[in-house]
Simulated scan of single mutants.
Amino acid sequence: MYRLAGLFLSFAVLFAALPADAQDKALTVFAAASMKNALDEIDAAYTAKTGVKITVSYAASSALAKQIEQGAPADVFISADTDWIDYAIGKKTINEPSRVNLLGNSIVLIAPKDSKIDNVNIAAGFDLAKLAGDGRIATGDVKSVPAGKYAKAALEKLGAWQAAEPKFAMAESVRAALTLVARGEAALGIVYATDAKIEPGVKIVGTFPPDSHPAIVYPVAATVTAKPEASGYLAFLRSTAAKTILEKYGFKFLVSPST
């Protein structure tokens, strides 16, 4: 009887340990909202290859950096600009040697797919306010969301910001801005080219010149509390397999891919 009870106890201990073991083979990634479609595909490929489950929290890079600062349990941070990863490094929440400037992107002017606006030449002196008419212009919050910051910088350089500013609808993330345009709730929007590529409800009507705003760079890094598995995941993000997926979605790969 005692031997049988001991056997049951051994099984109980074994099964109790399983969730912890499974949890050890899981990573939590905090990623810029604009990464969602491409990263979901990458994560599925990584899990199939390694068995490591990836859970992703998508939001504006600003929100994610502050959540990590407040102790949110993230293993990897992918930002849509260098400012917010620099912020996180300054707060001692990022493992700085693990940082890689992985991706590039561009910003575009979009309109609802049935809009009469088409083929806008975006250059110095272009009148965005006039183009929007009585409609709103959607982008990420220009004070914090990277896409919004890039948009404001470009419009200031092109001389279009002051007149257009009152017409802006500031969204909590670039994907939220994309949705406003797709639903016809905004006449125009400024988002990443990669966002416009995956949303059938919008069309690209113009592309902002690369020299009109700071270079769009997506850095990736492990957090200081990252599990050991994070290093393998970061390596996979630099792989040829990841490069193929990311370029399919329109991202520019900024590093030499590993095999």
Rank of each mutant, 00 (worst) to 15 (best):
residue 130 K to Q: 13
residue 142 V to F: 12
residue 135 G to K: 15
residue 117 I to M: 07
residue 103 L to V: 10
residue 151 A to H: 03
residue 146 P to R: 00
residue 128 L to Y: 04
residue 132 A to G: 08
residue 126 F to M: 06
residue 138 A to F: 02
residue 138 A to M: 00
residue 140 G to T: 04
residue 136 R to V: 06
residue 128 L to W: 04
residue 103 L to R: 11
residue 127 D to M: 00
residue 123 A to K: 15
residue 131 L to P: 11
residue 105 N to A: 14
residue 120 V to F: 04
residue 131 L to M: 09
residue 129 A to S: 12
residue 102 L to N: 03
residue 140 G to M: 00
residue 104 G to V: 05
residue 134 D to P: 14
residue 140 G to C: 01
residue 101 N to E: 13
residue 120 V to Q: 09
residue 134 D to E: 12
residue 121 N to Y: 14
residue 113 K to Q: 12
residue 122 I to V: 10
residue 102 L to W: 10
residue 131 L to A: 05
residue 144 S to K: 08
residue 123 A to Y: 14
residue 130 K to C: 11
residue 110 I to Y: 11
residue 131 L to Y: 06
residue 118 D to V: 02
residue 136 R to H: 12
residue 111 A to S: 05
residue 119 N to L: 04
residue 100 V to T: 15
residue 145 V to D: 01
residue 140 G to W: 01
residue 145 V to M: 02
residue 107 I to M: 08
residue 123 A to L: 11
residue 126 F to Y: 08
residue 151 A to W: 01
residue 132 A to T: 02
residue 132 A to S: 10
residue 132 A to Y: 04
residue 142 V to T: 14
residue 126 F to W: 07
residue 135 G to M: 14
residue 137 I to T: 03
residue 100 V to P: 07
residue 110 I to G: 04
residue 135 G to S: 14
residue 99 R to E: 09
residue 114 D to Q: 11
residue 126 F to N: 06
residue 147 A to T: 15
residue 101 N to C: 10
residue 116 K to S: 14
residue 136 R to A: 11
residue 132 A to N: 07
residue 121 N to A: 13
residue 125 G to Y: 09
residue 101 N to M: 11
residue 127 D to P: 09
residue 100 V to I: 15
residue 145 V to F: 01
residue 118 D to F: 00
residue 133 G to Y: 06
residue 99 R to Y: 02
residue 151 A to S: 08
residue 114 D to E: 11
residue 116 K to H: 12
residue 113 K to S: 12
residue 138 A to H: 01
residue 113 K to N: 11
residue 143 K to N: 14
residue 145 V to H: 02
residue 128 L to V: 11
residue 148 G to K: 02
residue 128 L to F: 06
residue 135 G to I: 08
residue 101 N to W: 07
residue 116 K to P: 02
residue 124 A to L: 14
residue 140 G to K: 00
residue 108 V to I: 03
residue 134 D to H: 09
residue 99 R to P: 10
residue 116 K to D: 13
residue 134 D to F: 06
residue 123 A to F: 12
residue 109 L to D: 07
residue 137 I to F: 01
residue 119 N to E: 13
residue 110 I to S: 06
residue 149 K to D: 05
residue 113 K to E: 14
residue 126 F to P: 08
residue 137 I to G: 05
residue 149 K to H: 01
residue 125 G to N: 03
residue 136 R to Y: 11
residue 121 N to R: 15
residue 127 D to R: 00
residue 100 V to R: 12
residue 139 T to A: 08
residue 108 V to W: 05
residue 150 Y to F: 15
residue 127 D to C: 04
residue 104 G to Q: 09
residue 129 A to T: 09
residue 99 R to W: 04
residue 142 V to M: 10
residue 130 K to L: 13
residue 152 K to Q: 13
residue 128 L to K: 08
residue 125 G to T: 05
residue 100 V to F: 06
residue 134 D to K: 12
residue 120 V to C: 05
residue 114 D to P: 06
residue 102 L to H: 07
residue 106 S to C: 13
residue 143 K to R: 14
residue 105 N to D: 15
residue 111 A to Q: 02
residue 122 I to Q: 05
residue 145 V to N: 02
residue 99 R to F: 03
residue 116 K to A: 13
residue 107 I to K: 10
residue 113 K to W: 08
residue 124 A to I: 15
residue 149 K to P: 06
residue 151 A to F: 02
residue 152 K to W: 04
residue 112 P to E: 01
residue 138 A to R: 03
residue 142 V to I: 15
residue 141 D to L: 08
residue 140 G to N: 01
residue 148 G to T: 03
residue 110 I to D: 07
residue 145 V to E: 03
